[in-house]
């Protein structure tokens, strides 16, 4: 497979910009990934996107690794490398630089206000991810039921989420969904 440099550059820019807007972590920008990869650029279809999200949530390691799957799908190993570096590099350097600065203004009123102002934004972004992914993943009544049951179990019990994912994957394998 011949990958032209244009694709790698596009991946690098898109994911670096996305990371800088990812208030609330990687899950906050899942709708933007979906918008760009599925709707704008046609890199993959809805089903493939849902698959990649599912894999990234079930696999060990940080959720942000969905970007490596997307990168691999678009441009092979180099694509995965580029998306991972773009998503995990610049913001981590920024965090390390800001960390000392931030500590110095621990009690400054503007810092408290900025922090408090960003919290509802980041929660809202993760809320948007939940809306988008529910739309992508829940294509049948049984799938909807599994989503509702998992949400309820994760909210009211302290079961390890892996059990819930395991039960759902068995239900899928058995052809129930």
């Amino acid at each position: 497979m011949k990958i032209d440099d244009g694709v790698l550059l596009t991946l690098a820019i898109q994911f670096a910009v996305m990371a800088l807007l990812a208030f609330g972590g990687a899950n906050a920008v899942v709708p933007e990934m979906h918008r760009q990869a599925v709707e704008m650029r046609g890199w993959m279809d809805e089903r493939q996107f849902a698959d990649m999200f599912a894999i990234s949530q079930a696999a060990p390691g940080p959720n942000v690794m969905i970007v490596a799957l997307i990168g691999y799908h678009v441009a092979g190993f180099l694509g995965a490398l580029v998306t991972t570096l773009a998503m995990c590099g610049p913001t981590a350097v920024l965090a390390a630089v800001l960390s000392n600065f931030w500590d110095r203004f621990r009690d400054a009123p503007w810092r408290v206000a900025v922090q408090a102002g960003l919290v509802p934004i980041s929660v809202g972004l993760v809320g948007a991810s939940a809306i988008v992914l529910t739309g992508v993943a829940d294509r049948s009544p049984v799938a909807i039921a599994i989503t509702v049951a998992t949400a309820a179990a994760a909210y009211w019990t302290r079961w390890n989420p892996l059990w819930l994912i395991g039960i759902a994957s068995l239900a899928g394998l058995a052809g129930l969904i």
Binding site: A54, I55, V136, V148, T150, A151, A153, A154, L164
Partner: peptide, 23 residues
Amino acid sequence: RRVLVGIAAAAAGLLISTVVKMA
């Protein structure tokens, strides 16, 4: 395919519960 469909549905549910807890 069938396994991934199941996992995707559960992962969406986990995300919903996270959002509710945060919100």
